[in-house]
Each structure stands twice: as C-alpha cells, then as structure tokens.
Computed example of a mutant assay.
Amino acid sequence: MNKHNILFIGLDTHKEFVEVAYCEEQRGAQPIHFGRISSAKMSITKLLRHFESKYPDATLHFVYEAGPCGYWIYRLITSLGHCCYVVAPSLIPKKPGERVKTDKRDALKLTKLLKTEDLTPIYVPEPEDEAVRDLSRAREIAMLDLKDAKYQLKALLLRNNINYEGTANWSLKHLRWLTELVLPHPAQQIVLQEFIQTINERIARLERLDNELTHHIHQWRYYPVVKAIQAMRGVRLLVAAGVIAELGDLSRFDHPRKLMSYLGLVPSEHSSGGKRNIGAITKCGNGRARRLLVEGAHSYRYNANISTELQKRQEGLPKAIIDIAWKAQLRLCKRYRKLLAKGKHYNLVVTAIAREMIAYIWAIAKEVILSPVNPGLRLARVPA
C-alpha cells in the first residue's frame, strides 16, 4: 500500500445518514465515492477507524456543510485527534452549468474542493458558548411570542370596538381592566380569557429566561467581555450577551474591517473597468448580531452624555475601556448628526453607526483579552 500524507474526506450530512467520499493527496487522484453510512456516533467512529487502518500513515482531513444538525460531528472527529472543517453552504463554489444535485455528488464535490483548498472553514463555537447562545436566542423567542399574544388580544378588542382609556398598556391596571371586560358573545369571552392566560404564562416564561440568562452569563468565560462592552452607549446586558454569544471570540479577527464584513455591514460593490458601483450592505454573516447592533445604534441620535445607568455599568472597569467607550460616543453622536444633516436616509445612518459600533466593541474586547487581569479568558480562546 502506498503511503499518503493527507487523505481528504467529504461528508454530506443528513438527519439519518451521511454520504461519504474520499480522495488521496497524490497528483491527479480523483475523489472516490465510499458509500452511505448511518448518522449515529457509532457509525462515524467506525468510519474513522476504517480510514485509520486503511491509511495508517495519512492525516485524515474531514469536511462537511454547516446545517441544522449542528457541530456534533465536528466535535466527535476532533476529539479523536483528526482535522475537521465546517463550511458555509453559501460559500461553496458552484459552476453555473450544474443542474444535477445529489448527495453523492455533494460529497464528491466537497472532497475535491477541500483538496484544492477552495473552501473557507467557519468558526465553530465551544459547547459552553453554544449553550449560552441557545439560551439567549430562547429569551428572544419568548419575547417575540409575548408580543404576538399581545397583538392578538389587541386585535380582538379592536374588532369589538373596545378601547382602553388609560395611559400605560400592559401595566397592572391595564391587566385588571382586561379581566373586567365582558364581550357580547360567550364564545368571544372564552377567547379573551385564553388570550389573557397566554399573556400571563408568557410573561412568567420571559422572567424565568431572563433570570437564567443573567445567572449563566455571570458564570460564562466571556463574561469579562460582556461586562466591558456594556461601557458603550446602547449596549446593555441583553445586547452585549447576544452579540458575544453570536460572534464568540472577537480576537480571531485581526482587523475590525473583517468583523464588519463578517456581519454584512459593509456596502456591496460591483465594479468593472473604470466604473465603481456601490450598493446596499451585503447582509451576509450573522443576522441576529447585526440586528442587535442596529438596535443599539438608535441611542446615538442624542447628544453625547454619561447617564446614571451608563455610569453604573462603567463602575469597576479599567480606564482604558472607559476611554474607548467615551471616544466612541463622541464620534458616533457627531457622525449621526452629520449624516442626517447631509440628507441621508434614517436607516442608512443607523446602519453606518452600527458598523462603527462593532469596531469599538472589537477594540474593547481586545483590551479585555490582552489584559493580565483575565489570563483565563486568554487561554480559553478558540482559534478560527
């Protein structure tokens, strides 16, 4: 048997099975279809043992597409001492003439592209980081569910021409007013009571998730970064935790422009020859982190100021971090007014502010990671 340095293995993963192909490193070697195996951990482990015994002197390099099945295959393969790459489906090169797509072809294609180094691996979070991200997303889903229930109840009242004369909706006074309502038909009264009960249940659910999220964030390894970036205006606990949970280790970006591009906050471009056409932002990358930044960017429409709440969030932070936050506030508030004075659209202005916000967040995160106060955080960094 010939000795090989690297064996490239492509996996087309699905819920119940995995299509496997492999290719040797030799010049001119073509990908070979291995077959279909079960997606159980035992089957994946057996596949690894098979290639280890068949190619004992080779380094196994695996690749598969990111999808709803998560990263357990990546963690299983890397825990057994082999290299594994996860790639985004949107970044896989595709020929315009390809009109046939099968699982076998996908596995062969991944293997060939891995050998020719035409794939860009994505960042895979640690299990702890992914758990905090799931909790943060669950809290956001609970908030959206609560809003939906409130909208449905208000729509019911609007159809029956019932208006609340108070000032604060969903206050204790408003909820008591809802319990005293009597609708024209008994069936509608049942609907009203169900809506009220649903709202109360979802309020309690949201409170539970808020408490759990706060507790786990304080135990998280990235809590120093979450606490530090709250020194910035428009970045409270939920926004800070959501951004860091979605992006993970910000130090893997060696320049903030790469982070802006990763979030899809940079303008698209289609230039050729002497013409340069700049379009809307690319909107690639993590959409939730981008949306959280845009929400925080709205606060810069006011003049630069250190409020009491912001002062409390900055207490105990190093002076270098507070200086970065103040520098960001001075620049972004000024830029906000300047862009509006030029006649720019409100959405464009907020997006521009969000793009610069992430640059200052990157600077603060880098300051925290390089600080000797947090040596554990620096050791816990995960390479890109």
Results as ranks from 00 to 15, higher is better:
P68W: 02
A228E: 00
E130V: 00
S171F: 03
K15P: 02
H218D: 00
A228Q: 01
K41N: 15
D118W: 01
E201W: 14
P121Y: 06
R75M: 03
E180L: 10
A241L: 00
N374G: 04
R252D: 01
A21E: 05
K54Y: 08
A107K: 10
L213R: 12
L181H: 01
D103F: 10
P56W: 10
G97H: 03
S371N: 11
L265E: 05
P68A: 06
A88I: 05
V294F: 06
G67K: 01
Q26H: 02
A58N: 08
E117I: 10
R313F: 02
M143W: 11
Y360T: 07
E309D: 15
A280L: 10
A168D: 12
A359H: 05
S38F: 05
G97T: 09
S38R: 10
L157I: 05
H82K: 12
G242A: 02
E207R: 07
M357W: 02
P125W: 00
Y300D: 09
H185W: 07
N305I: 04
R176T: 11
R75I: 06
N347K: 14
G28C: 02
R355L: 04
L339P: 11
S90R: 09
A359E: 00
L157H: 04
G316S: 14
V63W: 06
V368T: 12
G67F: 01
Y55K: 05
E24Q: 08
G285M: 03
T111M: 03
Q311N: 12
K275E: 15
R202A: 04
E180F: 03
I37C: 09
I9W: 11
Y336R: 04
Y151F: 14
R276Q: 15
N161C: 14
T198A: 12
G10W: 03
A204S: 13
S307M: 10
I281H: 10
L158F: 09
R381I: 10
R290E: 03
S272A: 07
K101G: 14
L379F: 02
M42L: 13
L339R: 12
Y262V: 07
G273D: 07
T282E: 08
L135P: 08
I199K: 11
L332V: 01
D12T: 11
N163G: 10
G264L: 00
V20Q: 06
Q197I: 06
L114R: 11
F253H: 02
I32R: 11
S307L: 07
G287H: 05
I244T: 06
I6K: 15
L108H: 08
K112S: 14
C23W: 05
A384M: 14
Y302P: 00
G264N: 08
C284D: 10
Q30W: 02
H14A: 12
A245I: 02
K283P: 04
D323Q: 14
K366I: 15
E315L: 13
L340P: 07
A384I: 15
G264T: 05
E212F: 09
S136M: 14
V124M: 07
L265T: 05
I203R: 15
G274I: 07
A359I: 10
G81R: 06
F34Y: 13
K104F: 06
P127V: 00
Q152P: 07
Q193A: 08
